[in-house]
Design a protein around this nucleic acid. Sequence first.
DNA 1: TCCGCAATCTTTGTCGACAAAAAAAATACA
DNA 2: TGTATTTTTTTTGTCGACAAAGATTGCGGA
Lengths: 234, 234
Amino acid sequence: MTKDDSSQITERKRGSGVKLVYDLLRDEILDLKLSPGSAIDEVQLAARFGMSRTPIREALVRLAGEGLIETLPNRSTMVSNIDFLGMPAYFDALVLMYRVTTRLAAQHHTADNLVVIRVQQAEFSAAVAAQDALAMIATNAEFHSAIAAAGRNAYYGNFFDRLLGEGRRMLRLYYQSYEDRLPPRYVDEHEEIIAAVEARDVVAADRLGKAHGEQIVEQIGRLLTRNDRIDIEL
Amino acid sequence: MTKDDSSQITERKRGSGVKLVYDLLRDEILDLKLSPGSAIDEVQLAARFGMSRTPIREALVRLAGEGLIETLPNRSTMVSNIDFLGMPAYFDALVLMYRVTTRLAAQHHTADNLVVIRVQQAEFSAAVAAQDALAMIATNAEFHSAIAAAGRNAYYGNFFDRLLGEGRRMLRLYYQSYEDRLPPRYVDEHEEIIAAVEARDVVAADRLGKAHGEQIVEQIGRLLTRNDRIDIEL
DNA sequence: TCCGCAATCTTTGTCGACAAAAAAAATACA
DNA sequence: TGTATTTTTTTTGTCGACAAAGATTGCGGA
């Protein structure tokens, strides 16, 4: 199809191919470079990466395990569609995880956790200043992931990471609703969260996590119902 | 190693092999028929199932994606160990999911959901009566999974299913603490939950879900600290 | 022209074989 | 006897090839 593959036929170390394909495809899917519903051809990928179908296949199996691609038996495999009907459920879960992870971080964090969190916050702040939407999504996810890590619950952590990953495509809409110019208020909110965590103020952490999450929900809701609203508000 | 494989060399339909191996291995791992840490040999499995290594490999990749097996690069793959240190975190997440799913079920269930839930409850009740620990674990999981399905949130549902699955090995300890003779009280608790869901009583559903979950945590705690207690109570 | 059927094409699922990597065994040397 | 090095063995990762299952195309008959 496209011929602009930068055909890197470099020698790879044994076992590195799968991760390479997996990471790249995952990013391309989540950044919407591969549009939902578009077909995925194994032989084409094999040619593009200069390897056999076997490692490609393994990467695809893993992506399917995360629900990022769907496999019709004996037939095509394609990038999964964004489940718009499931968005309320998604944001419900996201808000709950915001709350739980922030709350746990306030309880269980150590000094080095705060260092990591501050680094991520700095990167997020830089992305907002640079108006780089993709970077904002990624660094925001890493910020909250760092907070989740400080909460010391691997089960919440995995689930949260999964949500943040799977939601990158939805979150993209959210950032687009600001035309990629996120108000600096969000950077401040992160700062408040850090302060609450550092002070081990569980109640404040919970409240801020909830507010932070619900703000996103509201903005998305505003985006999705914008047309309706215009009708209603006559 | 063992030679007692009932070598079923039956003809399989194309594409069914992976699921077969995946399901069977998963069950064997979760029922502790394959002990944590034991090695997994691809060629041996291939011989046992009468198929090539390729579909075996795909099943293993999926199991690894769920964290049920661990893969040392270029070296052995083995059944993952049970993370005892992570048990508090596990049960924390489990209780929260009990609460959330029960609560949502009270809000969003439909009539056919209740039918399914009652069927699962009947099977759970039968398993308790028969003192079949493995069946109790499986049917209990299916009962709560049915409740989660009634809650209409796929994200919670997936996470909850994953927790219930991954925890089957831990839960086994829990049932062993009763020597596989679960008090009928648990069957009654399920009945109460059903009643609260049916009455759309969100508050009661939340409270019952929480109590149900915390009871399990207490029993596990009692099991794990039993020796210490004897020392302390002199 | 339209519908049913057969031939062809495309893409997946599976296989057997081989090479690389790590461990285990064997050998040489002090 | 103990240790370092080489050889063998074991097990994984990758490959190219082939067969099966749909989809597509082409053809013939009404």
